[in-house]
């Protein structure tokens, strides 16, 4: 039997969580502050949300960010899944070692370097910077996160399921589509969501690789924040937090439904 947690244990966890959530809570509460002075409480109000609606540039930036996130997360999910498949399912040779290293390297590479190097590439090949270049940059980084998530799931998946499909006459590509893909779908969804939020979140890489007309939301917020605290920013941030929270809730509900349909990961290991 594990011993019961001590008071110290419980206080540590509680304080840790309070530290993580208090600043966000403060931000959300102040986004409903009627006063322009961020520090003075002037009563509840939706005033700053109203002002956001009129801000065309901000809405355009949000639109750009969402489109880039959608495009890059889709591409990253495809490429990351293929990378995970190549690493876990195909022969151990030098090509696999190189791919494993290339998948891990962007995860630890400082963003300033990734951003700089991609920008220099785009300049070298004369590719105009904008929507496309940011999407490529985000795809490159986030596909590695997707690969890590999907790789973990594939490693967990009973290999004999795929062997059974092939044994029953199913060629490799069709085996992937009819057996592997349905079974790793939750990991794919998680990977997509991760890639989507990472893209939506990114400031540094986007700053390097963006061009005229492709200002993303973080770039816009960053330039505002540098000028000081404004209540409108509290409102934008609250909307972003709410969006992510909603997406996470929907995703976890969908995942729960999907996983209850295929509960046993390793059939037979009863």
């Amino acid at each position: 039997m594990r011993p019961a947690p001590s008071l110290f244990n419980i206080v540590s966890v509680a304080c840790g969580l309070a530290f993580l959530y208090l600043p966000i809570a403060v931000l959300v509460v102040y986004s409903f502050n009627a006063s322009r002075l961020v520090t003075v409480w002037g009563g509840w109000s939706l005033r700053w949300y109203g002002e956001l609606i009129g801000d065309q540039a901000l809405i355009a930036a949000a639109r750009t960010s969402l489109l880039i996130a959608l495009a890059s997360a889709s591409a990253a999910t495809l490429l990351g899944t293929l990378a995970a498949l190549a690493i876990t399912r195909f022969g151990a040779d030098r090509g696999r070692t190189a791919l494993s290293a290339m998948v891990l390297a962007p995860l630890v590479m400082p963003e300033v370097i990734t951003g700089l190097s991609l920008l220099l590439l785009f300049v070298a090949i004369n590719l105009d910077r904008g929507f496309l270049t940011v999407t490529i940059a985000h795809t490159t980084v986030t596909m590695c996160f997707v690969a890590v998530v999907v790789k973990a799931r594939l490693a967990d998946l009973d290999r004999s399921l795929e062997e059974a499909a092939m044994d029953l006459g199913c060629p490799p590509a069709r085996t992937f589509l009819t057996v592997t893909l349905p079974l790793i779908a939750p990991a794919l969804a998680a990977g997509f969501l991760l890639a989507f939020t990472l893209s939506l979140d990114d400031l540094v890489i986007a700053s390097f690789t963006t061009g005229p007309g492709a200002t993303t939301l973080p770039i816009r917020i960053y330039s505002d924040v540098r000028l000081g605290v404004k209540p409108e920013i509290n409102a934008i941030c609250t909307i972003m937090i709410a969006t992510v929270a909603l997406a996470l809730i929907v995703a976890s509900l969908a995942l729960r439904r999907a996983s209850s349909a295929t509960t046993s990961r390793r059939p037979g290991a009863a």
């Binding site: 004999s160 399921l161 059974a164 044994d167 029953l168 006459g169 349905p182 079974l183 295929t262 509960t263």
Partner: peptide, 20 residues
């Protein structure tokens, strides 16, 4: 000959039943 072209079938130790 790859496994999906062989007139031979296998019953797996873990059964490998497709859970979906």
């Amino acid at each position: 000959v790859p496994p999906y072209r062989r007139p031979v079938n296998m019953m797996f130790q873990t059964y490998a039943l497709f859970p979906h």
